[in-house]
Simulated assay, not measured.
Amino acid sequence: MSVESIYLTVLIVSGILVLLYILFGDVLDGIGEGVPFLNPVLILVFLVFLSATGYILELINVMNSFFILLVSAIGSFILTTLLNLFVLVPLSSAEESLAYSEESLKGRIGTIIVPIPKDGFGEVLFESKSGRIAKAATSYDGTEIEEGLHVLVVDVKDGVVYVKPYDERSLYRSDF
Rank of each mutant, 00 (worst) to 15 (best):
M1A: 15
V3I: 15
S5E: 15
I6C: 12
L8V: 12
T9M: 14
T9Q: 14
V10Y: 03
L11G: 05
I12K: 08
I12T: 15
S14E: 09
S14G: 12
S14H: 09
G15E: 02
G15K: 04
I16E: 02
I16R: 05
I16L: 13
L17S: 11
L17A: 15
V18D: 06
Y21S: 08
V27G: 08
L28N: 04
L28M: 14
G30K: 00
G30E: 03
I31V: 15
G32W: 01
E33G: 09
E33F: 11
V35L: 15
F37I: 15
L38M: 14
V41H: 02
L42H: 07
L42W: 04
I43S: 11
I43M: 15
I43L: 15
I43T: 11
F49T: 07
L50H: 08
A52M: 09
Y55W: 13
L57I: 07
L57E: 12
E58D: 11
E58L: 05
L59S: 10
L59N: 07
I60D: 01
N61A: 14
V62W: 14
N64W: 06
N64R: 07
S65A: 13
S65W: 08
F66Q: 12
F67D: 11
L69H: 12
L70C: 10
L70S: 09
V71A: 08
S72V: 03
A73W: 01
I74S: 06
S76R: 01
S76C: 03
L82C: 10
N84Y: 14
V87K: 03
V87C: 06
L88E: 02
L88A: 04
V89L: 11
V89S: 06
V89Y: 06
V89A: 09
V89G: 04
P90L: 01
S93N: 14
E96F: 07
S97V: 12
A99V: 13
Y100F: 12
S101R: 10
S104N: 09
S104D: 13
L105D: 04
K106N: 14
G107Q: 03
R108Q: 13
R108T: 13
I109Y: 01
I113N: 01
I113W: 04
P115S: 06
I116Q: 00
D119N: 10
G120M: 01
G120F: 04
V124L: 00
V124H: 00
V124Y: 00
V124A: 01
F126I: 04
E127N: 12
S130I: 13
G131F: 06
R132D: 14
R132M: 15
R132Y: 14
A134G: 09
A136W: 02
T138C: 07
T138I: 00
S139P: 09
S139Y: 03
D141N: 13
G142I: 09
E146I: 11
E147Y: 06
G148W: 00
L149I: 13
H150P: 02
H150A: 11
H150C: 07
V151D: 01
L152S: 07
L152E: 03
V156N: 01
V156S: 02
V156L: 02
G159I: 07
V160H: 08
V160D: 10
V161Q: 00
V161C: 00
V163G: 05
K164C: 01
K164H: 04
K164A: 07
P165Q: 08
D167T: 07
D167L: 05
E168V: 10
R169E: 15
L171C: 04
S174W: 05
S174P: 06
D175E: 14
D175Y: 13
F176D: 14
